[in-house]
Amino acid sequence: MLWNRSLIMIDEETKSLWSHLLGEALKGPLKGSELEALPAEMVTWEAWKREHPQTTVLNISRTSRNYVKDFYRNPSRFVFAWVKDAQPYAAGFDMLLKNPVLNLKLEKSPVVVTFDKESTAAHLFSSEVDDRSLMFVADKQGRMHDMQTGTTWNSNTGVAVEGKLKGKTLKQLVGIVSYANTWKKFHPNSKTVGPSE
């Protein structure tokens, strides 16, 4: 049913075949075209509506009851992954559980990965604010602070809630939750990141 255990889509207009993981047409008239991926997160309903009280929610019948928080009981099977400057990266869920705020330099620009154990949400943000790079540390309340200004940030939304940079928002980048094996098949050159990077 799937290709490399991942969804293939067809469009009604041109009948091109698309990979949802790559966002790219693999066959047909639009072959080589890419769809833009938007920042999205996989998170508990409770946490999502708390951060976004005005949210709407899809209202169609259920097809499953399996996808609850417990879905991650084997964290080593999952990665939080992204592509930046043509290089794929993957952060293992087991590593993120131990490092809920992970500063990464990467090739060109610094990023911070945040992971919220309670809601299971992972986020990727640019660490640059007004042309300056920030380093973040987690606190016990599930928030983070930057070492340069001491500002307190909501690690789920990237919004500065208290301190010098209050009101600023970190730019959210596209990252996805994937099975570790699937990501590796689609991106054999993916780099695994961790606290030493």
Binding site: L38, H52, V57, Y67
Partner: peptide, 24 residues
């Protein structure tokens, strides 16, 4: 239709937020 502990795919476009329960 959706319980607190269920996983959703959440997205915001131009200030509009929507959740897609994975179970749907």
């Amino acid at each position: 239709q959706v319980a607190n502990g269920e996983l959703v795919l959440g997205v915001v476009v131009k200030g509009e937020a929507r959740a897609y329960p994975i179970n749907m």
